[in-house]
Amino acid sequence: MSATDSTADGAGQEPTRRDFLYVTTGAVAAVGVGAVAWPLIHQMNPDASTKALASVEVDIGAIEPGQSIRVMWRGKPVFIRNRTDEEVEAAKAVPLDDLPDPQTDEERATPDNGNLLIMVGVCTHLGCIPLGEAGEYNGWFCPCHGSHYDTSGRIRKGPAPANLEIPEYTFLTDTTVRIG
């Protein structure tokens, strides 16, 4: 705009109206640029087909105590473990004050079967997959940066900030669970 002023276009008589035109034009153009930016950003969000795959059904009838299975859900592994009674007792025995991310075992296990634990198998530190029945608490241990989880999947030691995530799930029958 300074260039306009310096080039003697004689419009100095009505600065208000002229400036209004320039500002309006600039503002309308800026709105357009903003509107164009949104599709370019939004295209990187999960697409319709990805969102449609957001749930998975699993048959858990065949998991014996002490066994676990892994299923894929939203591109991540989900651990489903039928814990032994000792593991459950060990988890319940921990005082909440000792936990960096306090949660009781009841809050984490499935409601009808206290031994069954369904968790997203992704370390809450930086996304590695923890190893089962390992670590100082005989729960899960993440080899990447040394996070130790107990038999309830709660963080006990190491850099991870939170317990292993519990996904949304619903039991369709006694032996079929839908995750997501």
Binding site: P39, L40, H42, Q43, D47, A48, S49, T50
Partner: peptide
């Protein structure tokens, strides 16, 4: 066709 049908604003781009 996936771009045209599923990607957000894919058809536009």
């Amino acid at each position: 066709e996936h771009i045209m049908r599923n990607v957000n604003y894919g058809w536009l781009i």
